[in-house]
Nucleic acid binder design. Structure first.
Lengths: 221, 221
DNA sequence: CCAAAAGTGTTACTCGTACACCCATGT
DNA sequence: ACATGGGTGTACGAGTAACACTTTTGG
C-alpha cells in the first residue's frame, strides 16, 4: 500500500487515480457573466480551451490546491472559493484516471492583476453564453458550476465578491440579475440588502452621464 | 504520467493519492438516530470503529463506488445517497495519502437484510448521541454529515427514505423531530406534507395500543 | 429642456406559525 | 371509564412581492 520513490517514479500496490482541482472562475464585466479559461498547449485536446486547474500536491489539501491554482491564474488570493462537486467518470481523461474536484470561484473584475498569473498558457475570459469548444468533460462541469452559482444568488455575501471595492446598489442588482437572469424590483432589492447590515454607504458618489449614484462598501471595509 | 502494471504494482511519474468513498449511513430506530459503523480489524486504528467505505476501483465513478459500498454493508441498493464533502488533510491516514469522498446515506430500518453484508468485519448501529471512539478523522466527517442531513430536513423526499414502506404521519413527524431536534406542530406538519403530493393514503391502518393510525405510502407506490 | 439612471414607501398577498378539542381503540 | 395517541381548522403575524413618481445630473 505504501508508495516508494524509486527511479523517478512512484509505486503502489493498487492502482491510484490522479486527483486534480479544477476551478470555474466567474466574474462580471460590462454586464456579462464571464468565465476564465486557459488554452491547452499539450495533448490531449491541444489547442482547446479548458478550466484552469492542477493536480493535488502531497503536502496540501484540496482547498489549498484550489486556492493555489486560483492565485496562479488570476493573482487573486482572497476570493470566494467553494467546492461544488466531483467529476469522476472513468474515461473522462484519455491519459489516465483523473478525479476532478470542482470549485466555484468569484472575483471582482477590478481585482485582477493585468498580467494574470505566470502560467505560460494563453488565458482568456469568455462570455458564458458564448463559450468555445471545451476539453474533457469541462462543459458539464461548467453547467454544474453555473447551477451552483444560481442556487446561491440570494446570499448577499456571495454577490459582494463579484463587484468592485466600491459599488453602487444598481451594480449589485445588475450582478444579481445577470446570474439568475430575471429582473427584480429595485426597491425590494435595495431594502433587503441594506437590512442585512453587510454593506455600508460611503460619502463617495459615482459620477456618470446622469444622476450620481452613492457608492457602498462591505461592512468590514 | 501513464501507469504501468509490473511486478504486481502500479507505477506513476508523479505521486498519486488513494481515493476512497466513505459513507455515513443513517437510520431511525426506536426513536433514535442511528449510524452504521464497522470495527476495524487491521492497523491502523485496529479495534476502533470507523465509517464503512472503500477505495475507488478504476472502472467505476465515485457514486458507483459509494453505492457498491452501501450495498456491501447493508444489502440495500435503492436508498438515498448523496455526496456532501471531501476530506483531504494530508495526514488524515497514517499509511498513505488518502482522499475521502464522503457520502450521506439514508435507509429505513425495515429494509436492512438481517445478515447485513458479507464483509467479515463486525458491524454495529450506534446512537448518534453515544458514538464510540472513531478512527481517522471520521468524527469530523460524521459532524459534517449530520449538518448536511439537518440542512435538508425540510425536503420531504429525503425524509421518506427514513421510514418504512407504509408509515403513519406521526412516524414521519417523529423522524423529522429527531433530525432537527425540536418539536413541530402536528397539524402544520401534516398539512405541509400532504400538499406536496409526495405521499398518498392507503386503506390500511396501523393497529396499536390505541386509536389506529392511517398508513401512507410514497406517491410512486 | 430632455434623456437617463438614482432614489424613495406603502399596500396586498402568501406563507409560516400558533393554538385546542374531539375521536377511536385497548386495557 | 380511562389512558393514549390519532385526527382535524382557523386566526394572526412576518416576510415577500407588487407598484409610480420625484430627483439629479449631462448633454
Amino acid at each position: 500500500m505504501l508508495s516508494t520513490h524509486e527511479a523517478g517514479g512512484y509505486h503502489y500496490r493498487y492502482p491510484h487515480p490522479a486527483v486534480a482541482a479544477d476551478i470555474a472562475i466567474f466574474t462580471v464585466r460590462e454586464g456579462k457573466l464571464m468565465l476564465l479559461l486557459i488554452k491547452r498547449l499539450g495533448s490531449p485536446f491541444a489547442g482547446q480551451w479548458a478550466l484552469p486547474g492542477g493536480f493535488l500536491s502531497m503536502d496540501e489539501d484540496l482547498d489549498s490546491c484550489a486556492r493555489r491554482e486560483l492565485l496562479e491564474e488570476t493573482g487573486v488570493d482572497k476570493a470566494f472559493l467553494e467546492h461544488f462537486g466531483n467529476f469522476s467518470a472513468p474515461d473522462r481523461d484519455p491519459r489516465e484516471r483523473v478525479i476532478s474536484v470542482a470549485y466555484l470561484a468569484l472575483i471582482g473584475f477590478d481585482k485582477l492583476s493585468p498580467k494574470a498569473g505566470s502560467d505560460a498558457a494563453e488565458v482568456g475570459w469568455f462570455e458564458l453564453s458564448n463559450l468555445p469548444a471545451l476539453a474533457f468533460d469541462h462543459a458539464k462541469i461548467i453547467q454544474a458550476a453555473l447551477k451552483s452559482l444560481q442556487s446561491r444568488v440570494n446570499d448577499p455575501a456571495m454577490l459582494l465578491h463579484l463587484v468592485h471595492e466600491r459599488f453602487t446598489l444598481s451594480q449589485l442588482q445588475q450582478v444579481y440579475e445577470i446570474i439568475c437572469s430575471n429582473a427584480v424590483d429595485k426597491r425590494n432589492f435595495r431594502a433587503r440588502l441594506l437590512e442585512t447590515g453587510l454593506i455600508v454607504e460611503t460619502e463617495e458618489m459615482e459620477r456618470g452621464a446622469h444622476r450620481p449614484a452613492r457608492l457602498y462598501k462591505r461592512a468590514g471595509d
